[in-house]
Design a protein around this nucleic acid. Structure first.
Lengths: 354, 354
DNA sequence: TTGTACGCGTTATCAG
DNA sequence: CTGATAACGCGTACAA
């Protein structure tokens, strides 16, 4: 696509190299040293660890640096130290709103602590995920994996190389940040029970998804506790389309209330059910997970169990950065954050058919 | 938040340095050279430019590399060459769905051409945008600016340093990728005219937005052509909330059809209007721009003018990468892509009040 | 406190 | 076609 024509390379009159490396390339510590009349190593010290140099030479050097518009060369710095002031974040799908707040949260604490965040997308594939992770490992100081699809063992292998933090999944021996689903789910189920529902369906996500299993566990035990019947259904994929396709099974199950693995499924399901003539929530209640962007665009707006994804992102970044600051043997284990029910219009009292 | 307890640093028995740099750090070309019985420089040649070395030594080296699980060190490579096989993409807001497809498109062609995409968010601020851009310039080979908020001059200054491509805006002297709004807008306006509308409002975006100006121009001239009255209204910010706030002015304007700078505004506007008791589209038609994720979640689903954002992203990346491949003096100028109307439920025939 | 000298892993420039 | 050697820009023991 958009390939420029190849043939017209013939008559290239003046091969004007723009962006040339020649001439006044950016200044180095040597230039500063010359201007300030000191040794390059002194410049290095002054610019990295303030305090290891006398006050006046410090100022001398800083002035020269400012004048020469000096910027450190990250590569030259990374070579001897091995540190890049950079960490990676890999998400399954950049366009999945679930990850927005995670990205924001991680990004915010990154810049707050003078780190650069490198973001990558694994296209929902376990193998590309591993590939990207490996590629990244070469350029970053640490890695955050959000809802990873790869094996526990692969994650641990990565973690042996450099610090790794996992979000939305528990992996033994690796620091994790996971929402505790129980509070949000039990609120949701209690609300459903109070509204006259007797049978609840859970539409599951991808089979490799640790989080989907968690949620099903939570739903099942909450239902048990509230003396509701719980049934688990499968979905083809955790998207709006997947939700549409799940509608048949949901109907067939006889459940009057549905929780879905995520909001995308919930939205698709709701639309398909409405298209089939059902009233939401009068005839069937629908509850999603995550409270993604757009969850309140629907009619009725979606009831959902919200995870504090922003906190997850910033929490993971904090753990990672603390780990990198490396005061020693911190084993932050797993950080749990609370979930809560966001009650909107898609769930409510069941109106018995006449 | 989530600060780990500091005090318990006391009893740290074995300061086990995990992730140590010591011992079997990753293999270098020297290791390969030793194993293959050749000179390091030969290894370098064999691994970078295939063909500049005899077939059998080539294989020898490749085998050794594979055995030692060798990976190039990007920093060491970048130091002498100045090239990083990396380019940056700066968007105003990662959580704004408008940019999804741009990101995807750029990311896809990046990996297709063995480049790594570094993504950054400017938090909708012109100054952070410039700051991040400058920071990035040190680590990337080139830069893509999507809907930049900074001055033309700043962009040109950046472009003097390294190749820059701009999306959604035209900047003199810099390669640009811009959707041509005219086709989509004229389709939209013709449709409105055919449905009995006489007066059309345009709710504008940020004043610095080049694209917002383009769209207003398009709306005005299309209305002129169709003999409709066109009026321009302002918005506080290009978000759902901004759309809500614009509802009063829209009502006051007397227009029966509204085009908004983007879908977010359209969604907010529609919800507020509906909350006020208006029927969409019977009493008022609403048309957005971009066809973002969630635009069809609303009731009625949103009519919108779609830009091929994916194409924009991949197109910009292609231009940039071709530029970097640098066969010489390609001046791709600006690449225009077509827009089209996506007709959904939020626009339609005007039902005259009795 | 500051200067000296060397290494980080790779590419580029020469000879051979 | 291949081997030696000098950069690339910065950090850092070590010595002064």
């Amino acid at each position: 696509m958009t390939e420029p024509a190849k043939p017209d390379v013939a008559a290239t009159p003046a091969p004007v190299k723009k962006h040339a490396r020649d001439g006044k390339s950016s200044a180095t510590i040597y230039d500063i040293a010359r201007v300030a009349g000191v040794n390059p190593s002194t410049v290095s010290r002054a610019l990295s660890k303030p305090g290891r140099v006398s006050a006046k030479t410090q100022k001398l050097i800083e002035d020269a640096a400012a004048e020469l518009n000096y910027h450190v060369n990250p590569f030259a710095r990374a070579l001897p130290t091995g540190r890049t002031s950079t960490f990676g974040l890999i998400v399954a799908d950049i366009t999945n709103p679930t990850f927005f707040d995670i990205i924001r949260g991680a990004g915010a604490t990154a810049t707050a602590r003078d780190y650069t965040l490198v973001l990558a997308d694994s296209a929902e594939s376990a193998v590309t995920e591993l590939t990207t992770a490996r590629r990244m490992m070469a350029t970053v100081d640490g890695l955050i994996l959000a809802s990873p699809r790869m094996d526990d063992d692969d994650i641990r292998a990565l973690a042996r190389d450099k610090p790794v933090v996992v979000i939305n999944r528990e992996v033994d021996g690796v620091p994790c940040v996971v929402p505790d689903v129980n509070k949000g789910i039990s609120e949701a189920v209690r609300s459903l029970a109070a509204n006259g529902h007797k049978k609840v369906a859970y539409v599951a996500g991808p089979s490799q998804s640790w989080m989907s299993a968690q949620r099903w566990d939570g739903v099942r035990s909450a239902c048990e506790w509230s003396r509701l019947e719980a049934v688990r259904l499968e979905s083809s994929k955790p998207t709006v389309d997947g939700g549409r396709q799940a509608a048949r099974e949901v109907l067939a199950s006889g459940a009057t209330a549905v929780l879905t693995y995520n909001d995308l499924l919930a939205i698709g399901l709701m639309r398909e059910l409405q298209a089939a003539g059902l009233m939401v929530p009068d005839q069937i209640s629908i509850v999603g997970f995550d409270d993604i962007f757009g969850a309140d665009f629907t009619t009725p707006p979606l009831t959902t169990v919200r995870s504090p994804l922003g906190e997850c992102g910033s929490g993971a970044a904090t753990i990672l950065l603390d780990h990198l600051a490396g005061t020693g043997a911190e084993t932050p284990d797993t950080l749990r954050v609370e979930t809560e029910l966001v009650l909107r219009g898609s769930s409510g009292r069941l109106i018995p058919a006449k």
